[in-house]
């Protein structure tokens, strides 16, 4: 896990663990994480792939503005993982650029 342990100004105490899965792998996040921050802390930077050239996509803005971090969460496509809080038991999947089978 790559988390900041010492900081001259901010305090990041050991917060309670939140368990979740990514592509079936069991991972741990911390209370207060968004999905993307928890994935990043676990070394997962590729969140999806571009539609035509299948290039890897990570997050860019981290404030819900750029759509670079959309993933499928608990079966729901196109969740902005950089602003969605991580919740115990969440199942996170990478998705095709459009969010997979569109259901409308």
């Amino acid at each position: 896990m790559s988390r900041i342990s010492e900081h001259p100004i901010l305090k990041f105490e050991d917060k309670p663990v939140i368990n979740f899965t990514f592509e079936g792998r069991k991972l741990e996040g911390r209370q207060g994480d968004t999905i993307a921050s928890a994935l990043h802390a676990n070394g997962i930077m590729v969140l999806s792939h571009s539609r035509r050239n299948k290039r890897p996509r990570g997050f860019f803005c981290a404030i819900g503005k750029c759509s670079s971090c959309l993933m499928t969460v608990n079966g729901k496509a196109n969740v902005r993982t950089c602003v969605e809080p991580l919740v115990e038991g969440m199942e996170i999947l990478r998705q095709p650029a459009t969010g997979g089978e569109l259901k409308w």
Binding site: I4, S37, F60, C61, A62, I63
Partner: peptide, 16 residues
């Protein structure tokens, strides 16, 4: 990453 994203990740979530 945008500078804002780097800040958010570090200073808000404590992630490197």
């Amino acid at each position: 990453y945008g500078a804002g994203a780097v800040q958010t990740l570090m200073n808000q979530y404590g992630v490197v």
